[in-house]
Amino acid sequence: MRKAVPYAGALLVPAVAGTLLWRWADRSLRSPHGLPTVLALVGGLALTAVALLAHNALFREGGGIAAVVLLLAGLTAVWVEARDSAVLGAVTDCVVVGEVRVTHHPTFGEGAPAPKTLYHHTLDCVGGYPAEFSAEERIAGPGGAVRIAYDPDRRMDPVLARDNESHGSPVIPTSLLVLSAALSVTAIAREGQGEGDGEGRGEGRRKGLSS
């Protein structure tokens, strides 16, 4: 029974911290009811710090550094995936104004990313934002109509409305947090085994001597 609390903590700390951080990030970054980026990050860092402190308080005698690293990696992945799952909340109709400007961005060195060509479109949008949109393709010529999805609070870059989809997945953060919990559970299960084995060997030696 003395291990019931650590066992429960090993499972609950990653699960609760990951769930709360995902909900916080989703609410903070999703338009139009989000918070400024700085406040969102501060809240996320605070939740992560509380989770690490709780882990240390419960498992400082058996949690292990690997479990802490996986917990931190899992919570970082939670934030990244939640950010990528945020869908921009506003859409505006725009018209391309003037000629599309093209810039070329070469790269150098072995293993460098492929060269990139960007097409810069000057836009006249309902509401006045965005005034310019850059993409790796020509989305329309002069006078062409374009639909743009954007964040009214300007925390994320605008995208084409057709590309305004969720790309985040909970698979990676969940896997990391489950591994962290598994390491903590294993460490708790092994606590005291070494002492017990040592006592058993000592008792055996004493019996041998007495006989």
Score class of each variant (00 low, 15 high):
residue 119 Y to T: 13
residue 105 H to L: 11
residue 35 L to N: 01
residue 82 A to C: 03
residue 145 A to C: 01
residue 153 D to E: 13
residue 103 T to C: 04
residue 82 A to T: 08
residue 5 V to G: 03
residue 209 L to E: 13
residue 208 G to Y: 12
residue 24 W to R: 00
residue 36 P to C: 04
residue 81 E to C: 05
residue 33 H to F: 12
residue 127 G to A: 12
residue 67 A to Q: 10
residue 172 I to T: 12
residue 160 L to H: 05
residue 75 L to I: 00
residue 40 A to F: 07
residue 96 V to M: 11
residue 19 T to G: 00
residue 92 T to C: 08
residue 97 V to Q: 15
residue 100 V to K: 12
residue 192 G to I: 12
residue 172 I to F: 15
residue 115 P to R: 05
residue 46 A to E: 01
residue 169 S to Y: 11
residue 74 G to E: 00
residue 175 S to K: 06
residue 36 P to S: 05
residue 78 V to Y: 00
residue 127 G to I: 04
residue 18 G to N: 04
residue 155 R to N: 11
residue 1 M to P: 11
residue 177 L to F: 09
residue 116 K to H: 11
residue 63 G to V: 07
residue 141 G to H: 10
residue 126 V to C: 01
residue 138 R to Y: 03
residue 46 A to C: 11
residue 14 P to M: 08
residue 144 G to Q: 10
residue 169 S to M: 08
residue 7 Y to Q: 01
residue 176 L to F: 13
residue 24 W to I: 02
residue 117 T to Y: 03
residue 109 G to L: 05
residue 211 S to A: 13
residue 8 A to D: 05
residue 110 E to S: 12
residue 196 G to Q: 15
residue 105 H to G: 02
residue 2 R to E: 07
residue 203 E to N: 07
residue 8 A to H: 01
residue 182 A to L: 15
residue 66 A to L: 13
residue 50 V to G: 00
residue 27 R to H: 07
residue 126 V to Q: 14
residue 120 H to G: 02
residue 81 E to W: 04
residue 8 A to P: 04
residue 106 P to L: 09
residue 61 E to V: 09
residue 57 A to W: 14
residue 90 A to Q: 14
residue 140 A to C: 07
residue 195 E to R: 14
residue 56 N to P: 00
residue 202 G to Q: 10
residue 71 L to V: 10
residue 5 V to Q: 01
residue 49 A to C: 03
residue 71 L to F: 03
residue 167 H to V: 06
residue 99 E to W: 02
residue 52 L to R: 02
residue 175 S to D: 03
residue 181 A to D: 03
residue 102 V to R: 14
residue 27 R to S: 09
residue 4 A to N: 04
residue 60 R to F: 09
residue 160 L to A: 11
residue 193 Q to G: 07
residue 177 L to Y: 03
residue 49 A to M: 10
residue 47 L to T: 01
residue 192 G to K: 10
residue 69 V to P: 04
residue 155 R to E: 09
residue 56 N to C: 05
residue 83 R to F: 05
residue 66 A to R: 14
residue 57 A to I: 06
residue 69 V to S: 12
residue 29 L to D: 03
residue 176 L to D: 09
residue 170 P to M: 06
residue 159 V to F: 02
residue 97 V to H: 13
residue 18 G to Q: 01
residue 136 E to K: 13
residue 167 H to W: 11
residue 133 F to Y: 15
residue 147 R to N: 05
residue 13 V to N: 02
residue 36 P to K: 05
residue 97 V to N: 11
residue 148 I to T: 08
residue 119 Y to W: 15
residue 180 S to W: 10
residue 176 L to S: 10
residue 92 T to L: 08
residue 202 G to N: 06
residue 200 G to L: 12
residue 148 I to G: 06
residue 165 E to K: 07
residue 175 S to W: 08
